[in-house]
Write a protein that binds this DNA or RNA. Sequence first.
DNA 1: TCATTCAATGAACACGTGTTCATTGATTTG
DNA 2: CAAATCAATGAACACGTGTTCATTGAATGA
Lengths: 359, 359
Amino acid sequence: MFEGKKGTMNKQSKTFTNRQTVTAQDVADKAGVSRASVSRTFTSNGSIAPETREKVMRAASELGYQVNFLAQGLNRKRSQLIGVVVARLSDPFRSSLLESLLTEIHEKGYQALVTEVKNQEQLEETIRQFTQYRVSGVVVTSGQPPTELVSECVQHNIPVVGINRHMDLPYVDFVCSDNKMGAELALAQLLQSKCRALGWLNYKGSTWAGVNRGKTYRRLVESKQPEFGLTLSDLTAFEDGYEGGRAAAHDYCLSLKTGSVSKLDGIFCANAQLACGFLDGMRECGFEAPKEFHLIGFDDTQITAQYSYRLTTIRQNTSAMASQAIACLEARGADANSAQRIEMIPVSLVCRHTSPMND
Amino acid sequence: MFEGKKGTMNKQSKTFTNRQTVTAQDVADKAGVSRASVSRTFTSNGSIAPETREKVMRAASELGYQVNFLAQGLNRKRSQLIGVVVARLSDPFRSSLLESLLTEIHEKGYQALVTEVKNQEQLEETIRQFTQYRVSGVVVTSGQPPTELVSECVQHNIPVVGINRHMDLPYVDFVCSDNKMGAELALAQLLQSKCRALGWLNYKGSTWAGVNRGKTYRRLVESKQPEFGLTLSDLTAFEDGYEGGRAAAHDYCLSLKTGSVSKLDGIFCANAQLACGFLDGMRECGFEAPKEFHLIGFDDTQITAQYSYRLTTIRQNTSAMASQAIACLEARGADANSAQRIEMIPVSLVCRHTSPMND
DNA sequence: TCATTCAATGAACACGTGTTCATTGATTTG
DNA sequence: CAAATCAATGAACACGTGTTCATTGAATGA
């Protein structure tokens, strides 16, 4: 009797002083079972009688019990967090990719630890902090992580996947839009529109994806050269994004006037931002697409669909990329030694005004 | 001798089997001090002799020791995580705000737990998961968290701050762009341009911020009405974002033709996406700004600066908003009972082509 | 010289969970 | 009916850290 009362007192005083933390032990007490049974109820790991589970569930919901993820992660040596490295969210494609990643991550029951990196050393610090939170995986959408750091992750048994970004390390998986397919779609469209004097526009300090797209496109054009008599000129932007594309257009028009380059009739851009800038820059110089040249961009962001641009683009399937990326992480989490996966995600051509559909 | 060898064996076998986890105890062993001293070295909490600290630091760096944040958080009952609720990152303003938040969060030594919410129940689940990770604070940039959920956070001693979003709950702080100042700047600009027939464009199911901007603007216009003889008409978009604005323009032009409305000469939009859409919609109908009407938007996103739009806008200072938001969280984390803070962040007018600067 | 103060240190506890291991009781098999 | 299997359960340990508390030794004051 006395002990019972004392217990009650303790219980009450406890619920008063730190009401914020109701632990599995409290649930166990209330349900009249052991704490282990509570744990089993929520992890569905061991075996447990249905009626016991029922009792526990009722007690838990009455007390408002929630599992402490920190304790859970500490015990399991792994949290339900996934680290995501992003950069330059001002690029609509980047934020769109992030959006797809967040959706996928939550759907699979994880939480996203998002970091924006501006330079190399930040990236190192970031990944190190990811490991300190014992993340279940790391998605790199930007930046080039140093080799030793990534292998440190591998040693810690943390899966790493790169999106549109090749890291040639064993055990590091890789999800990428099919740039070859993109090049084929773009070239087919331009050829069908009778374009022969082709141009490729990219930022000078472009990402791996941009460089790869350029290489792939050039290779393809050269293979078709004999058949169609093509030329391919490089247009270089010295700044990234919209303003870079616009300036490149100005440069190009100037060169046209001085006659140092010949006129191009089909231009392919490494990304949508560059393409929109280029389109506007050409307008400022009095050239309009598709009348005077055809223009195709990469990334199908919202802005490309807008009336003032209506850009023909190669559309990347961000949700497919996101879902493949998380699938890679889970697969490698299950078997760290599985073969390196390289997932090519199909792209599609979206025909709009700057290079319209031919009949 | 035998024991020593056995100890070494254990050590080695340990470093081999789970090399991934080097704990504070390992550092302590190597440095010849107690584990408590290692903890003190890294928390700078208790007092410790400089030479001891030095020894520990050396051992730690040689072993590559890193604090386990999960264990740390479990012990401190609080992690270094900050939960961020976002939505619709396809809106450039949202992603820009998120970017500023990420920067600020990392600068202050936290990590960001980012969740995108699509509906109300997701929001509930999300915030619940935040509490399970014992976050140091929650930033809500979207959605309207249910009252009881927020007060649950407050009970758990988790600070909550809303950005551009009022939750009239005690202990919940609030950072907001100064909509009154925005209204004043916009109206002054339009008045100076001799606009008298004013319009206000907003999405029908707008956010709190949009509604508030509308109310504030209307109040201001009404107060100036006697002096200038103003009229203010509501234009309603039935869809959000760019397409909503565009459709609203079409509707408006149609009404103009049928004569059911009179012509407006100065239009103010609740956000930049709507404004760009409206501008394009008017173009399609043959009306151009600023020749036939003046147009001002809210949010100064990258797209508004582009050549095809050059939209005059009210610029929100996202980095100031972010830094104030985190400051609120820290202040309330230190003193949970402090008075509710309401931080108004000044905005500024960016004059561009759709309502140019007057001389 | 002795009493006092104080910085520095290590042992021990707490944080809240997952999981192993032995035990128990019921059910099935021969 | 006896033996064997098996699901269900609770006690105990482990995860890696921060922090309190007592102890120690040196430095300071009278």
